[in-house]
Design a protein around this nucleic acid. Structure first.
Length: 579
RNA sequence: CGGCGCGUGGCUCAGCCUGGUAGGGCACUUGCUUGGGGUGCAAGAGGUCGCUGGUUCAAAUCCAGUCGCGCCGACCA
């Protein structure tokens, strides 16, 4: 490809709304251009990187027995109603009507369509196992698309779905995808972690996320410093590295005035007791809005140590809800407890009380008295109130104990680029996707689903692999491989050499890119750094006259000055070593 | 939906407070110049200052409304 024939317009300045490096670089290098919030046109270079990544996906999936299909983007309401997700997915589904006033939505995910597809065909255990995938544009009507965090409305995703006879077989398929994903991300040569995660409203039980590490990442991860344990903070077990166990004996309950002490920090200062020894009370409605007809507020209280934060996902899972429960409003708290938030506590409450396991070791607590500006001291569960259930409810954090060893957890930020789920029979049961086993018994299909954000992975790659001058493409997805800076395009001798090199590279299977524009050398060097293809060859009059051609590695900026006849062999020698 | 902020040539921004001829830089066109890390000079083309209404002799500027966008939050496979 020659620059003069391509449609590439680099920018010296990044758009005003770009915050993170990958966003700035993608726009500056002309990889993408915004059409509307969260919706982009991919330029030739961006598309080539996407296509290369897609082909890696195809390669790794095809050789493990998955089969590529393509499902529609526009999907009828009826399918989504079978799984209740027409309403459950809420406004995230972009819904509309056609001319006959039939409702449709744009595909945000394809469990419904794929299940519908196979239920008509798979009738027997003889048809199993089966794994189908597609690479396709998804549309999710995100409340707030964030380029900074790579939350697009329209994006390309590879989604795969598996169908098996029973759980052991399904988990075996899960392993195959897990390994395929590992192979895929290894081919990018990037730093990633596989972490335990929450299944979200897609259902299912076993799930892992593939996270590319990057400071701008949206997800907080905790990784063991001794084992390969890693988890999204959403589901990471919270275990104190040094548990607090009080051996005080229970003292007499007392009420005391705490005028205007509303926050835990205030209270810690006022009482001289550290926040980690105080107990705070939070209030939620266990009606998470899943059933729109149920407008009632069913309050619950949650007790945590003052220094800890609630993990809403753990609470959601404990209560068996679809969504994290909403906090009660100040007014609702007052109706429940008789006091404002800040003066509330568990004693005398009529609602269920859930307690984080970190609170267990404390004795003679200080908690709100359910009376404004008063607290109680020497409160003890069992004696002064009843605990409904003790559970791990707090957010894990750096320094907590590793659940699998005596090591500690370390915090990272990650960009979720892949996700594997074991779904079980949730969708097959709801949609009557059954097969007959050997004994002629009708059973629901065991399903798994497996996603990789294609466009997100490309952006995350740049986020992890760039420097002050521009992009450093991982070799596996670089839009082009060898960037020829033709410094004197008007000089027949120089351009002749560049042309021959270009032809020879092409003949040997490389993907060369030639900057043949009538631009000054400085401009070409700056643009070559920005575009970030793995190798650069500088071909100019001076170099040819001295028989010194420069071959530069983009990642390390290492220069190799070689004679004209050695250029090709130098490229061939360097290429395998490049990441 | 709540909080904050921004809408001025293709891009990036100034001007607004204190109303009076619409500007700089990048990019683009032409000429000369330069030619191995974003040359220099000169001459150009390109904008109903988001939109609507109001105040005023006069509005990019002040007021009201409206639309759009961005950030934070809630939400999110």
């Amino acid at each position: 490809m020659k620059w003069s024939r391509n449609h590439i317009y680099t920018l010296k300045e990044a758009p005003g709304d770009a915050e993170i490096p990958s966003h700035k670089l993608m726009v500056r290098a002309g990889l993408i251009k915004k059409v509307a919030p969260g919706i982009y046109t991919y330029g030739n270079l961006g598309l080539r990187a996407i296509r290369k990544f897609e082909n890696i996906l195809r390669d790794e999936l095809n050789k493990r027995g998955s089969v590529e299909v393509l499902m529609p983007m526009v999907q009828p309401r009826e399918l989504w109603e079978e799984t209740n997700r027409w309403t459950e997915m809420g406004a995230g589904l972009l819904k509309f009507q056609n001319r006959n006033e039939h409702y449709f939505c744009l595909g945000a995910t394809h469990e419904e369509v794929i299940t519908d597809y196979v239920r008509h065909d798979i009738k027997s255990y003889r048809d199993l196992p089966r794994a189908l995938y597609q690479i396709q544009t998804k549309y999710r009507d995100e409340i707030r698309p964030r380029f900074g965090l790579m939350r697009w409305r329209e994006f390309i995703m590879k989604d795969a779905y598996s169908f098996d006879e029973d759980q052991p077989a399904a988990l075996k398929t899960y392993e195959i995808f897990y390994e395929a994903y590992r192979a895929i991300f290894n081919r990018l040569g990037l730093d990633y972690r596989i972490v335990q995660a929450d299944a979200g409203n897609i259902g299912g039980s076993q799930t892992h996320e593939f996270q590319l590490l990057a400071a701008a990442g949206e997800d907080a991860l905790l990784v063991s410093d001794t084992t390969d344990f890693a988890a999204n903070v959403e589901v990471c077990p919270a275990i104190d590295a040094e548990p607090i166990v009080s051996n005080e004996s229970e003292k007499v309950l007392e009420k005391f005035e705490t005028l205007k002490q509303r926050t835990i920090q205030d209270l810690a200062k006022f009482t001289g007791v550290e926040a980690k020894f105080l107990v705070k009370s939070l209030f939620f409605s266990s009606n998470d809005g899943t059933n729109p007809k149920d407008k009632s507020v069913k309050p619950i209280a949650v007790l945590l140590r003052g220094s800890d934060e609630l993990n809403p996902i753990k609470l959601k899972n404990l209560l068996g809800l679809t969504n994290p429960p909403p906090m009660l409003t100040d007014q609702e708290v007052r109706e429940l407890t008789g006091a404002s938030p800040g003066s509330c506590g568990p004693v005398g409450l009529k609602c269920p009380i859930y307690m984080d396991h970190g609170v267990q070791g404390l004795k003679n607590w200080i908690v709100g008295a359910n009376e404004d500006d008063f607290h109680l001291k020497n409160v003890n569960p069992g004696r002064d109130f009843q605990v409904t259930k003790v559970a791990d409810l707090r957010l894990a954090r750096e320094g907590d104990k590793c659940p699998e060893s005596n090591g500690r957890l370390k915090a990272y930020r990650g960009i979720e680029v892949g996700h594997v789920f074991y779904l079980g029979t949730k969708y097959s049961k709801m949609m009557n996707a059954n097969y007959l086993d050997k004994g002629g018994k009708s059973l629901p299909l065991e399903m798994g689903c497996y996603g990789i954000g294609v466009t997100r992975t490309v952006q995350a790659s740049i986020e992890q692999s760039h420097d002050g001058d521009g992009i450093i493409w991982p070799k596996a997805i670089a839009p082009y491989q060898v960037h020829i800076c033709l410094l004197d395009p008007a000089d027949a001798k120089v351009s002749g050499f560049a042309e021959r090199l270009y032809e020879e590279l092409t003949a040997k299977g490389f993907e060369p890119f030639m900057d043949d524009r009538d631009e000054r050398p400085g401009v070409k060097f700056k643009d070559a750094d920005l575009l970030g293809f793995p190798l650069r060859v500088v071909v100019g009059g001076k170099g040819l006259d001295n028989n010194q051609i420069e071959v530069v590695e983009r990642r390390t900026k290492t220069q190799h000055k070689v004679s004209a006849t050695e250029v090709m062999t130098t490229i061939e020698k360097l290429w395998p070593q490049i990441k």
